[in-house]
């Protein structure tokens, strides 16, 4: 038993390096507001960051690959809303052409805070995300992303939104 544990140790460490310490890709949820109002309109962004050399996919992804799958757990009314993808780049390999993003991609979706959301509380968005990254080989990535925004009687813009848009593949974003 003890012997077995020793055998497993390098595997555990390898797992940590692959998943926790040096992720090949990360996902996080962002918004164009730091504080929202009841009934307020927001733009949410799913930011996918890839390690150098890896790319993820647009929708549609082209000859192979897989578009990101985003399943909202909360609020459920976002489930049927459609995401806007930044203009993709073309990637070519021996099997054909695919479309997607290197470094950073920011996917956007419009959302509305419920009109009866209590001021002083929080508005929470949570989603399960699956996305594919490929270099020569492909790795599926999975994450649960969450964003909690305070509900106030006056909204507060998120000051870094425009640079985030630009980094995320929306070059025409205005200040």
């Amino acid at each position: 038993m003890k012997f077995r544990m020793y055998l497993m140790l390098p595997l555990l460490l390898a797992g940590l390096t692959a998943q926790g310490l040096e992720p090949l890709s990360r996902a996080r949820l962002l918004a164009d507001r730091s504080a929202v109002t009841p009934g307020g309109q927001e733009t949410l962004g799913l930011q996918l960051v890839m390690a150098p050399g890896w790319h993820t996919y647009a929708d549609p992804p082209g000859d192979s690959g897989m578009a990101p799958r985003i399943n909202f757990k909360q609020p459920s009314d976002l489930r049927d809303a459609s995401w806007r993808f930044p203009p993709p780049h073309a990637f070519r390999d021996a099997a054909g052409v695919t479309y997607g993003y290197e470094n950073v991609a920011l996917l956007l979706i419009d959302a509305r805070v419920p009109p009866d959301a209590p001021v002083g509380g929080n508005w929470t968005v949570r989603a399960d995300v699956e996305w594919l990254i490929c270099r020569e080989l492909c790795r599926p990535m999975f994450a649960t992303v969450e964003l909690e925004l305070p509900v106030r009687d006056r909204e507060v813009l998120f000051p870094n939104w425009t640079p985030l848009l630009r980094r995320g593949g929306w070059p025409a974003a205005r200040e």
Binding site: S64, D93, A94, A95, C134, C138
Partner: peptide, 10 residues
């Protein structure tokens, strides 16, 4: 139907 997955490694 549209196929999905890894590209064929030709």
């Amino acid at each position: 139907a549209k196929p999905y997955g890894c590209s064929v490694k030709y």
